[in-house]
Nucleic acid binder design. Sequence first.
RNA 1: GCCGCUAUCGUCUAGUGGACCAGGACAUAGGAUUCUCAAUCCUAGAACCGGGGUUCGAUUCCCCGUAGCGGCACCA
Length: 520
Amino acid sequence: MIDDTNFTKDVRVRFCPSPTGWMHIGSMRNILFNYLWAKKCNGKFILRVEDTDVERKVEGGIESIYENFAAYGIEIDEGPQVGGDYGPYVQSERLDIYKKYSEELLQKGSAYHCFCSEDRLKELRENQIKNKQQPMYDGKCRDLSPDDVQKKIKAGEKYVIRLKVPRTGFTEYEDVNHGKVRVKNELIDDQILLKSDEYPTYVFAVVVDDYLMKISHLIRGEEYVSSTPKTILIYEAFGWKMPYLIQPPNVLNPDGRKKLSKRGGSNAALKFLRKGYLLEALWNFLALLGWSPSDKDGNPDEIYSMDELVKLFDLRRIRKSGSRFLPDKLDHFNGHYIREMDDSELADRIFEWIDNIVLHDFVSDKYLELLDWEKKLIEDTKKYHPLWKGKREYFEKILPLVKERLHYLAELPELLSFFYDEKLEYSKDDFKKFSNAKDNLKTLWAELKPVLEKSWEHETWENTIRVYADKAGWKHGDMFMLLRVAVTGRTASPPLFECMEILGLEKCDSFVNDCIKFLE
RNA sequence: GCCGCUAUCGUCUAGUGGACCAGGACAUAGGAUUCUCAAUCCUAGAACCGGGGUUCGAUUCCCCGUAGCGGCACCA
């Protein structure tokens, strides 16, 4: 059983990205689980960069990791840029450490030199697959005599260091969420620990670093489950105590299949920020993907602030099965947080979003293609941002009208355009349902304009339209709609009266006249 | 192919050997409100993968099947 007494003590957790250029939204969920646990237990959150794959390593990779953390507002207690007592925090700077520990395993007889060429291994694997066998190392170098080994090394033969996995018996471990898992040793490959370029492999580096950095809880994606027995065997070979193990299920694509896609970067963490999802909403949504509080502790509406999440979060309540990533609920949360904010704060947030996210150059963007909606957003933002910011009072007056229709901030340019454009674009279709739209609009406006010139009182204004609608034999709603299309260029808009009041008589007059011209 | 993990409304999930004809949220539909679209409020439909056990009783425990996921690299 999991030892509960120490479960929340001396907590040190870590997230270990590879510097491949950009970060994935699914990773953010795992980061959140680590982060929440650290905060909850007054522990430390550590960032370690796993750059042991020389080929996949990318220029600016570490910076792009940092900019993601910064944009998501995650504070790092120890890491490459902030330092800490257990550094260095970049694996390529720790090669001598791995070398030393691999020698320890060699001495203990838990590891061995392997001189097999990559070509031989490839051939071996192909044959095994052809013969429907499990592809794994055949142990050719496992029992070389020390003399042979020395001779080969002297002769300059390249080698790797492999773990000597027992041929019989079982390896067992206990996972906080899954309980005991047991694997036959004969199915575990003699894992390479140190590659021929003297870089460690992932499994080895992780064990050594987690041990040296005193990591208390290993919270990492389900994709590592299969390599966990190897991890355990390395811990056992060293005689080290294993940290608590938590392997949250993967976040899956909305179609329900497969790990959340990495292709094209459409699920890049930064894209969600660029789309205008607020951090509050993102965290709220992500936290609930694979974890939930009990009914007793939870809120019925599932709205949780970061503080509440910290209070309620518990690694032991993480689910076992994968969750699909459907943005509907994210939209809902985002709308909620937008509506909850007062207008001035929302305005601040919008401008911050534009400066720090939308129009900001990220290192990650070098490795992510801009999607069509992003290109359009950037273009629109460049056009409207100065106008929005230029007259903040006007902007803040508009916000309450649009904020309850807003799912994410990227919708703003479209939603607000008629408040800022000099000309509107009309569509014939919008007038189809009205008989004699042009004349009615003309007469209506002729009657309404003098009323508005006198006063903007809601009742007189509304009454004028109703009276005219009766005269024309129209449904009242249709008359409102006609005017709406004329003044906003669209059939769905915030309440007509408020829109017109903000636009002002001059602008309304100009739009209506444009519209009449359009109808001719 | 082999190994491991998993399986509750469309989706995210709660829950338990009897208090569950299974609770919440999102989405959907209908209604109220209304100048449209929203927002808000109300209502409705919607699930324990299949088959065997164990048991007085199983959605809950066990086995098998099925399906999904993950992995099987000198990637992480």
